[in-house]
Amino acid sequence: MSSSFAAIKPAIKLSDQVASALEKEIRDGRIRAGDKLPTEAALAQQFEVSRTVVREAISRLRSLGLVDSRQGSGMYVKAPGIEPLQFDLPHAASREAVMQIVEVRRALEAEVAELAAQRRTEDDIAAIRSAMQHIADAVRAGRDGVEEDVLFHRAIAQAAGNPFMISTLDYLAQFLKGATRVTRANEARRTDFAEAVTHEHRQIVAAIEAGDPAAARAAAAQHMKNALVRITQADGVFWAQDGARLAQPLVAAAVPPIF
């Protein structure tokens, strides 16, 4: 196996990071079916983590049906089709629908943030900061903060000063709110996720307030990119308990493309 891996950073649970990195290598075909994984010791050295972390990551890959052990030989990547992934169709459809909406948001939010940084007024900045504070207040009060999150992003759109863009966001509101409900439910399950979201919001606001369009665009795009990563890291328990139920309106609204 020729793949090399970067050192892991402690922002997200270490075993999840290792598992995600290995899963990507497998799904992208850089580690192929039948390939033997490096030993725990070798992986621990490459990722600069403990062998316990590697063991937990491998366990996750096994639960996904991506690898299996051969007695006395080691851990091998499984050939496609031997066993289905332990991620049933409704859950897969739910995750896919949420990710597609977040992809739409990534394009919109990046443009909106850039324009907001160019055109914002002092009143706009005050409204954006107030909306961000309302998210924190909602979380402290035990609410999910979905409405407040949506209004935060709408306040940024208001600062962009383009009524057609606001109309587009309002038209998409039912889908954006549905996806936000899923992403926030997932993020609430992990302190590191919740803290990351707060930090990302602050970065967007700081760039807008500084009047830096490029930084605002980059911060908004990164926020959505990170939201996608957090969704891919949601485990089966989340989808079984909350994710699939919350995403059901998005799945029902999905229309197959016409060619």
Rank of each mutant, 00 (worst) to 15 (best):
S3V: 07
S3Q: 03
S4G: 02
S4V: 08
F5I: 05
F5T: 09
I8S: 11
P10R: 12
A11H: 07
D16W: 14
D16E: 15
V18Q: 10
A19T: 06
A19C: 01
S20E: 05
R27V: 10
R27P: 05
D28H: 14
G29Q: 03
R30D: 00
R30L: 11
R32A: 15
G34F: 11
D35W: 00
K36N: 01
L37P: 05
P38D: 12
A44C: 04
Q45V: 03
F47T: 05
S50D: 04
V53I: 12
V54M: 04
R55H: 09
L61I: 07
L61C: 03
R62S: 04
R62F: 09
S69G: 15
Q71F: 09
S73P: 02
S73W: 03
G74F: 06
G74A: 06
G74S: 04
M75H: 13
Y76H: 09
K78Y: 00
G81N: 12
I82L: 14
D88A: 06
D88Y: 13
L89T: 15
A93L: 15
S94G: 14
S94E: 08
R95L: 07
E96D: 05
E96G: 07
Q100C: 10
Q100I: 11
Q100P: 02
V102W: 08
V102E: 06
E103F: 12
R106A: 11
A107D: 10
A110M: 09
E111I: 08
E122A: 15
A127H: 11
A127W: 05
I128A: 00
R129K: 15
A131H: 05
Q133V: 03
I135T: 14
I135V: 15
A136I: 10
R140L: 07
A141E: 12
R143Q: 09
V146L: 01
F152S: 06
F152E: 03
F152D: 04
H153M: 02
H153K: 04
R154G: 07
Q158A: 13
A159K: 02
A160G: 10
P163R: 08
L169N: 02
A173G: 10
A173M: 10
F175M: 10
L176Y: 07
R181W: 05
T183D: 03
R184L: 10
R184F: 07
A185P: 05
A188Q: 08
R189D: 11
R189T: 13
D192C: 06
D192A: 13
A194K: 02
A196N: 12
T198E: 15
H199P: 02
A206N: 13
G211E: 09
A214G: 08
A216L: 00
R217Q: 09
R217D: 07
A218C: 07
A218Q: 10
A219K: 03
A221I: 03
A221Q: 06
N226H: 14
L228V: 04
L228I: 11
R230A: 05
R230D: 07
I231Y: 03
T232W: 06
Q233T: 11
V237N: 15
F238I: 01
F238C: 01
A240R: 13
A240S: 14
A240P: 00
Q241E: 14
A244S: 14
Q248H: 04
Q248P: 00
P249K: 09
P249R: 07
V255A: 10
